[in-house]
Design a protein around this nucleic acid. Sequence first.
DNA 1: TGTTTTACAATGCGGTCGCATCGTAACGGT
DNA 2: ACCGTTACGATGCGACCGCATTGTAAAACA
Lengths: 198, 198
Amino acid sequence: MPKQVDHEQRRVQIAEALQRLTTRAGLEGVSLRQVAAEAGMSMGSVQHYFKTKDEMLRYALEHRHKLRSERITAKVLAEGPPTPRSILRACLVEILPRDPDSEGDFLIGVAYFIRAVADPAMAKAFGEGMPELLAFFADQVRQAQEAGDVPASADPETEASVLWAIADSQGSEILMGHRTPAEAVATVDYYLDRLFSG
Amino acid sequence: MPKQVDHEQRRVQIAEALQRLTTRAGLEGVSLRQVAAEAGMSMGSVQHYFKTKDEMLRYALEHRHKLRSERITAKVLAEGPPTPRSILRACLVEILPRDPDSEGDFLIGVAYFIRAVADPAMAKAFGEGMPELLAFFADQVRQAQEAGDVPASADPETEASVLWAIADSQGSEILMGHRTPAEAVATVDYYLDRLFSG
DNA sequence: TGTTTTACAATGCGGTCGCATCGTAACGGT
DNA sequence: ACCGTTACGATGCGACCGCATTGTAAAACA
């Protein structure tokens, strides 16, 4: 068969160009042409690897999910002796936009959220990564409960939602410049303090 | 002078058409033509009242702020004897998208958020309504503290952020169909339970 | 009544969009 | 060497966008 090209690598290349564009310029309204230019290839090439724009966006979303997961687990493992609390803190802080990288990641999340609102298929894809993250959070809370660090009255699943809510919402506030990363981290710590008061 | 028309009423008419469209079709990508059609007037007419699209969006944003404030205060006053807790609950539930109306309101908020991310001027306008809402929340928490219903250790300002975060994030989850309004309300109640445990 | 200002409809312009099509260059298998 | 497939660049189509312009009807003032 013909010219052998690593499809996966090409797709990643495109996805990362998309991510860079999304971070830099804005988020909605990035066009295929822009993505192609940013990736240093022709539009036809992009089309070759992704039949439609949606397909490209969906792939980039999965790529992002993977990267984020890797980043978080790396962060968690890097934190000396991991306790449920330190793990949760690391996750939440990692989610917040604190630098261009994490800001880009957060922005991509927002971009997909927007699409997801109008497009149920995208909402499904977008929400796929959520349950396991929430389950992971809930599990940490449960472990802390068993260790007596979190009151038994707390509901792990709901606490997981609240934790996510804080990171999610504070992240948006940071993006809009209504809050600084430091303030957001302080809020996270505040809440963890209150939660871990068993 | 000539044909006297109530400008404010016309603008409201347009803003509400925009809101309806945003609710129904999606949120980003509503065009001036669509808005005009929805409002039952010509595009030239819309242009007459708003020189640019941004101007229209900005006006509609303020309109929304006003409506939401009115809606919330009405809701609070309607709740028999208002306690800080019932007030907070009413506010949070009111923010959540529970029916087409509140869903539209929430969607508009999302639409503006999106614009706000890329457009600092919009971010400013969008964030203008926030501090007073947060201050109001914080004030309720403080009052509850003085009444001994909320632990003195709680920080009213941060709690206000957390409360907002819950409504904000849960609202998004509802929009995407990842959560039902009932579940979101349960989360709100759960958190209020934990907060009001003085 | 005539003039002036406002309200609005119609239309067009330049631009961009996603997507389809087509031609061709590069390579692997036979 | 040839053939079939793949990679990808070039180009164009139809639709839509925001915005500007133009023309006209109507109403308040003189």
